[in-house]
Write a protein that binds this DNA or RNA. Structure first.
Lengths: 262, 262
DNA sequence: TAGAGATAACACACTTGTCCGTTAACTACA
DNA sequence: TGTAGTTAACGGACAAGTGTGTTATCTCTA
């Protein structure tokens, strides 16, 4: 049973899904299922292990606990891309030329950063290396980087130096994202990240939470903030209507970004 | 008169040299001299203008004043590469595993950064985006980025936030470079950079100046520090013997890094 | 120590990106 | 408004990078 031919990134994603579904599988089985050689499977598994999604052992691989790989940047970059793009487009409309915009280290805000060339001049403040590299090349964007200790899993800078840098700045608007939201609160699984996000919220006049619908209803270890602490919450059009209604009833200012369904 | 075929980077460098020598030339003349089409010349000149080396006007191009393009990163990257590599190899021997190494935003220290994989584990502190990107991928290197406002001409972060971040850290060794050294002092043409370099010197136990011999004997607008303020000064083997002797007589601790002449 | 599983080394196909010239359209200036 | 100078658009040549399979070598472990 060989599946349809496709790109390597697709196959990596599908192998990851397969491993997560099965719990653990052998390399030989994967080679058969995906119609590639054993060598290629091993290379793919090495890559997924490097990304922190699976764990290899002699004879096969097994899935990592979700709390580990959900923090992983490359995994997050592949997830809910259409939803994030829709949310980013909506967030972009909240930005006026001349503003100081703060962006945290999330793949959703990365989408926002890529649209910033449209509203120059602009000041961008961020601790996310991907955003730094994306905006450093853009004319008309004044970039202020938040320093700190580099965390490879997030590709961003965190820790005390980062928080101190945030505290000495003031932004017009903050775009932030988180890994889960439910019961009126936003959650994140990592202490370091929570501390930085909270500092960012204290230093911004307007606080906007960007969250795709796949994260609604979940929780994570640390409570970040109440949803009413944000001035705006942007979700994509895939969010269930009753969830949106419930949020609005609890006085959360929800925006729904329509998905481009083509 | 068409010259020998070569890579584009070579031609860019030689066009830049040609323009600097002549002062100003026409696009047509350059096309003839370098044996390429007019269109290619225009593209090269656009690139050089973007880099800040030349200025275009209708009918040709003219050179920028040296004070402008000497600050330019891409120009500096192409200059004295062999000397910088030799100096970096020598600097590398001053680093032991476990150290906290501070690197400023100069092309010479970029050479040092590329060798750091050999002496892990290591902590690297820098405000230079190129070093950040180079070391963020290296396992065994703990990276601490200094934030601040991004300066495209240097590809680094400067300003008050950067200086404050430096002041709250302490490094075992600092490698720094500058644009000129003579009469017992090091010089640099930009105020912002000087302030950051001075802060770095205050935060490092051992201060090492890396300077290739093409910069010896020059000066620039701002005085950075006395050469005796550095614990070590590393020059390449191209430095004239009498200059080295004079430095030693004024109690500067000079190291000469041999050039690999093959 | 034999064999299953894993890795290293090499070669090839394919994709991607870069560089460059031609042609045509555009623009500033006399 | 004509013309020299410039830019935009297209396509081909080439180099570099990526992905893959085959074969050979290595390494666990039963």
């Amino acid at each position: 049973m060989t599946e349809r031919p496709t790109s390597r990134l697709d196959r990596l994603q599908r192998i990851a899904d397969h491993v997560l579904r099965e719990g653990s599988v052998s390399a030989g089985e994967l080679a058969q299922v995906f119609g590639v050689s054993l060598m290629t499977v091993h290379r793919d598994l090495d890559e997924l292990e490097r990304q922190g999604v699976v764990r290899k052992f002699r004879g096969g691989v097994s899935a990592q606990p979700s709390s580990v790989f959900e923090s992983n940047l490359l995994y997050r970059l592949r997830t809910a891309t259409a939803e994030k793009a829709a949310i980013a487009r909506h967030a972009r409309t909240m930005i006026e030329p001349g503003m100081a915009v703060m962006l945290d280290d999330s793949t959703t805000t990365l989408g926002v950063a890529e649209l910033l060339g449209e509203v120059t001049p602009l000041t961008v403040i961020t601790n996310f290396l991907r955003v730094i590299n994306a905006t450093s090349a853009q004319p008309g964007v004044r970039l202020i980087a938040l320093g700190g200790e580099y965390y490879p899993t997030h590709d961003s800078f965190l820790g005390v130096p980062c928080i101190e840098a945030i505290e000495s700045l003031r932004a017009d608007v903050l775009f932030t994202s988180t890994s889960a939201a439910s019961a009126g609160h936003a959650y994140h699984q990592e202490q370091e990240i929570v501390l930085v996000k909270r500092a960012m919220m204290r230093s911004a006049n307007r606080k906007v939470l960007l969250i795709d619908h796949t994260k609604l209803g979940g929780t994570a270890l640390h409570q970040l903030a109440a949803l009413t602490d944000f001035d705006d919450v942007v979700v994509d059009g895939g969010a269930p209507a009753d969830v949106v209604r419930a949020l609005r009833e609890s006085r959360v200012n929800v925006h729904v970004a329509p998905l481009h369904t083509d």
